[in-house]
Design a protein around this nucleic acid. Structure first.
Length: 1035
RNA sequence: GGUCCCGUAGCUUAGUCGGUUAAAGCGCUGGUCUCACAUACCAGAGAGCGCAGGUUCGAGUCCUGCCGGGACCACCA
């Protein structure tokens, strides 16, 4: 006899035990199974979390859905790979480490140097990678941990290097200029999302430039007078009548004497704004830079040094070396002294600041590397557009295809360089030299690398040595001086010798690193071992799994060929462009095939105030807090129930008072509070009055302090469900004594058996269909409703009597175990731990079980088969009959409740109904006693209403319950009148509709027919109620 | 500014091809510790679907405009 289950499920114990069990058995591991042709492989690549910090609920949502799909497909017989890994997340990670270093030690990266900084970041990465992977395991993620990858590991680095080299060789990579957000204090470029805007007190100055060869002057305004030194044009609107005659003329900048053209540009200049004329400073303003790109002849002059001082290019020695703000004042004074100043007004100016140094950002022109998105013959952007348009890649929900297509349609070149130290270093070595100087050593080296040294004098030349096609590719480009050329060499992966030759010859590797998205764009094929085609990818060095499953040796990369393309990518909408589009594009370029067939875009997690959860906002919630409180299964089940197709998920958060467990709703102030040095903020409990520190992503509570943890009542939904399921099994196990496996003949099935089989078969299709469409919320609802409202509320209740009856007990036990077995398999992808726990408990007492015919249960529900149930079990008419019974029971319970009849008191029921309905009622008469403590005294067409009865009218039957001495005639009359009013309302609505000629004429005949039938039914029902009322009034 | 999405009970959300007087969970009210479950059971109250128009026999569902919220992109001399 198995041990009794406790009354409540203990999630923590089950989670530990079963996760270890799965890992040891290698259930999560996936290896090529070319022989298994019937079920195709199923791979999902994790949207690699950044190692910037711990996972929050957004990740938990993302991870739950991927695991759900992976487990579902695994049960369907697919070799299901869920590939785990993390992203180095260049800027974001370097920024957190740098910020911490600055705050705690007052050091900038220039103080510690490249190598030391990168080492610090590696330490950070190790810590957070560990944390992230353990969080995923806590969530029950069935990843193949042996294959864990990191974007900077050897396998991924090789792919990145190869990708870059191929792009370079195919002339898809070029060096160009671009404006970046420059932090002059830290002397670094800052990403857009690390910039915040703040209004500052500024001025709006108006100056004039004299028109060359004329007495005229042209007035313009600016908030940054120092940029006059870098002006290369003045711009007016092409149809501005005031300036028509000046277009094409030149003005002189009085500060440095430079003459610049007056150009017309409809996008930059607006007639109604200010004077209508605008100065153009391409090197220091994004709009002006865009204007320059439309008018490249005006040129670009960068007047700033990296530290924010003015350089020699400004054309006036008195400004050189001074800070830009100092020059702002000087330039203004000088213009005033020269008589070109028209005054200024005070203005609030929105100014971008660096989030890290809190100093103002300067737009700064810098050298960058780009990938051409529209170059023939590759047409990278177009190839990715085609893949979606012809259906090789499908979005779920489909509307997200538009985001993807619109963005790719712009075909903007991809800037892939970042001025950082954390990332893949750009594999290009360059040397600038003077053509005039004879440089025999250089020529010799170029020859040695396999080129004709004549090319050195030909800017634009492309160099691919025959002998080292995969090792080296070069370009000759113009240098900054007229006689200068720059030689760029890209070195392929694994060619350190070539790198040494270059460096010995004075070449220097580009200091920049690649955009993080460059490496994550390769994720689907890089993690599978591309570009190595002659062996499987190595397993992770620091394999975090408990699995001992070895990988097969092979002379081909079977992992890549078997699992690529993957089946589905599951992600959130904010990276459809940055990541999804680029994976498609690189997949097509490197592999000749799309990286995945489906893209499922799930909702975003919002906090209780409607803000998306993110690390930078600090409103993330650690899934561990919720898992500790509610259990993994509850968290997963609740999350899956959120994951619909339209709405984002709002998650109002509460703090749980550590003293009395009262939930205190989180306020915006609490969420944002950052301790200013001293005491940590506290939250006060309204119930017990005590205050306590609370968890926050901004700080750690003081050691030893009781902490109010973040919780969310919404997860009680899942917790309660798990408890319900647990107790259903507990009930089963308590009633399985003497269980023997055996078939059940179809003719032995009772009404409720056939009903539950019909329902089970119906929901099997619903769950499978909705999961195939990634409608997780619908699948979850179906399962919950079936488990709770059908299986527990009705079927289990109806089995109780049969389980007590010696003769009926064996069949009832077999049905009970069979239904539970199927249910646990359906639930495994959603709530794997409790499903496994119950599966194993059930196996102790019923190792052989099944529906109608028993078979041996799988050793784990994780590797059991996904239920596929016979379609002919579905029986709508039978379900309809069963619903009639349910309606009757509910009506009886209703009467009991209204008249406050003690649960132990039996009442009698008389049913007036058609003979076939009466027969059904008689068949299940035992259930009336069982479910409503009611004796079915009579059922048939000739049943009369006994005096002093409570009554109810259903669509196909009327019921009477004699309540001598209890019945309150007045109250009963009122109740019936209310019912009659409700029916009359329905009837009026239908009559009106049917009286409308247009409805009868234009609506489809079946709709009209349906309305007529409904009306007739309602009238019959109303008649019954009116009879009851008449009797009550009379007697 | 552009594109897309969302506004349904106090809260969080379903609502398929437009078709009975709109559904669920939580919360609330009343009653039950009934031999699986008080994280439970039974019953009840509670919204006319952001606002204004339109199309239609019929609109929560389709169209237009507005209001509110969000996301992505562009931009802010």
């Amino acid at each position: 006899m198995p041990t009794d289950l406790p009354k409540q499920y203990d999630p923590q114990a089950a989670q530990q035990q079963w996760y270890a069990f799965w890992e040891q058995r290698g259930y999560c591991d996936a290896d090529p199974q070319p022989d298994r042709a019937a079920t195709p492989p199923h791979a999902i690549m994790i949207p690699l979390p950044n190692v910037t910090g711990a996972l929050h609920m957004g990740h938990a949502l993302n991870g739950t859905l991927q695991d759900l799909v992976t487990r579902y497909r695994r049960m369907q017989g697919c070799e299901a790979l869920w590939m785990p890994g993390t992203d180095h997340a260049g800027i974001a990670t370097q920024a957190v480490v740098e910020r911490r270093m600055l705050e705690e030690e007052g050091l900038t990266r220039h103080d510690v140097g490249r190598e030391a900084l990168v080492n610090r970041i590696w330490k950070w990465k190790d810590a957070y990678e560990r944390r992230i992977l353990s969080q995923l395991k806590q969530l029950g993620a069935s990843c193949d941990w042996r294959r864990t990858r990191f974007t900077l590991d050897e396998v991924c680095s090789k792919a990145v290097r190869r990708m870059f080299f191929r792009f370079f060789k195919d002339s898809l990579i070029y060096r160009g200029k671009r404006l970046v957000n420059w932090d002059t204090y830290l002397q670094t470029a800052v990403a857009d999302d690390e910039v915040f805007e703040e209004e500052v007190d500024g001025k709006f100055w108006t100056f004039r430039y004299p028109v060359v060869g004329s007495d005229e002057q042209i007035a313009f305004s600016t908030t940054r007078p120092e940029t006059m030194l870098g002006d290369t044009a003045v711009c007016v609107h092409p149809s501005d009548p005031r300036y028509q005659h000046l277009i094409g003329r030149k003005v002189r900048i009085p500060l440095n004497g430079r003459e610049i053209p007056i150009i017309a540009d409809a996008l930059l200049a607006k007639i109604e704004m200010g004077t209508g004329a605008v100065k153009v400073t391409p090197a220091h303003d994004p709009n002006d830079y865009a204007c320059y790109q439309r008018h490249p002849e005006i040129g670009v002059i960068n007047i700033l040094n990296p530290d924010g001082t003015v350089n020699a290019a400004c054309g006036n020695d008195s400004y050189v070396g001074r800070d830009r703000y100092e020059v702002r004042d000087l330039a203004t004074e000088d213009m005033a002294a020269l008589g070109y100043f028209d005054g200024s007004e005070d203005r609030k100016i929105p100014l971008k600041h660096s989030d890290r140094s809190k100093t103002p950002i300067e737009p700064y022109l810098s050298d960058q590397w780009f990938v051409k998105m529209d170059a023939e013959p590759f047409r990278l952007a177009q190839s990715a557009i085609d893949a979606v348009q012809d259906g090789r890649v499908r979005f779920f929900p489909s509307r997200y295809a538009k985001t993807y297509l619109d963005w790719l349609g712009e075909k903007r070149d991809w800037c892939i360089s970042r001025q950082l130290w954390w990332g893949h270093r750009i594999p290009v070595w360059s040397l600038t030299f003077n053509l005039v100087e004879n440089n025999p050593e250089l020529r010799e080296m170029v020859e040695k690398l396999g080129f004709d040294s004549q090319v050195l004098g030909k800017p634009g030349a492309k160099l691919i040595p025959k002998a080292q096609e995969d090792a080296l590719s070069g370009q000759v480009v113009h240098g900054s001086g007229p006689d200068e050329v720059t030689l760029l060499f890209c070195v392929g992966d694994g060619n350190e010798r070539v790198e040494q030759i270059l460096e010995a010859a004075g070449f220097q590797q580009d200091p920049d690193v690649l955009d993080t998205w460059f490496s994550s764009a390769l994720w689907p094929h890089a993690t599978l071992g591309w570009p190595d085609l002659d062996h499987n990818p190595p397993l992770a060095d620091n394999d975090p799994s408990q699995s001992t499953k070895p990988q097969a040796q092979s002379t081909k990369n079977e992992v890549l060929s078997y699992f690529y393309p993957t089946r589905v990518l599951i992600t959130s909408r904010d990276i459809i462009t940055l990541w999804v589009a680029r994976m498609v594009l690189t997949g097509l370029y490197n592999m000749g095939d799309v990286p995945f067939h489906h893209v499922h875009v799930h909702p975003k997690m919002l906090d209780g105030f409607g803000q998306t959860m993110s690390k930078s906002k600090g409103n993330g919630v650690d899934p561990a807090d919720l898992i500790n409180k509610y259990g993994t299964d509850a968290v997963r089940f609740t999350i899956a129930s959120f994951a619909g197709e339209t709405q984002d998920v709002r998650l109002p958060i509460s703090y749980e008072c550590p003293h009395c467990e009262t939930l205190i709703p989180q306020t915006l102030e609490q969420q944002k509070a950052i301790p200013a040095g001293g005491a940590k903020p506290r939250v006060k409990c309204p119930k017990c009055g005590q205050s306590s520190q609370y968890s926050s992503p901004w700080f750690d509570p003081d050691p030893g302090e009781p902490v109010a943890r973040m919780v969310s009542e919404r997860f009680e939904y899942g917790r309660n469900f798990c408890n319900k399921l647990w107790n259903a099994c507990r009930f089963a196990i308590l009633n399985l004594e003497g269980y023997t496996p055996g078939p059940i003949a179809a003719e032995d099935l009772k009404l409720e058996d056939r009903w539950i089989l019909s329902r089970l078969s119906t929901i099997a299709e619903e769950i499978t269909t909705t999961l195939d469409r990634y409608q997780f919320d619908a699948a979850t609802r179906t399962l919950r409703e079936f488990t709770w409202n059908e299986f527990c509320d009705w079927y289990l209740e109806m089995l109780k009597a049969r389980l007590r009856d010696e003769a009926q007990r064996p069949a009832a036990q077999r049905m009970l175990v069979g239904v539970l077995d199927t249910l646990l398999r359906f639930l495994q992808p959603f709530t794997p731990f409790i499903a496994e726990e119950l599966w194993q408990r059930l196996a102790e007492i019923a190792p052989e079980r099944g529906l109608l015919a028993p078979e041996a249960a799988a050793e784990s529900v994780m590797v059991a088969s996904w239920p596929v149930l016979p379609v002919d079990w579905r029986d709508r008419p039978l379900e309809r009959r069963f619903e009639r019974l349910q309606e009757t029971i509910v009506a009886v319970r209703n009467v009991r409740s209204i008249y406050n009849i003690a649960p132990g008191t039996q009442i009698k029921l008389y049913m007036r109904c058609a003979p076939d309905v009466a027969r059904d009622m008689q068949d299940v008469s035992a259930q009336f006693d069982n479910l409503a403590k009611t004796l079915l005294a009579a059922a048939g067409a000739d049943v009369e209403r006994p005096p002093a009865s409570a009554s109810f009218a259903l669509s196909e039957a009327d019921g009477y319950i004699p309540l001598e001495g209890v019945i309150d005639r007045k109250a009963e009359l009122a109740r019936q009148r209310k019912e009659a009013d409700k029916l009359r309302g329905f009837i009026t609505g239908h009559e009106k509709k049917l009286a409308n000629e247009s409805f009868v004429a234009k609506a489809p005949p079946e709709v009209v027919q349906q309305a007529r039938e409904t009306l007739a039914g309602l009238k019959t029902q109303l008649q019954s109620v009116e009879d009851i009322i008449a009797q009550l009034s009379a007697g």
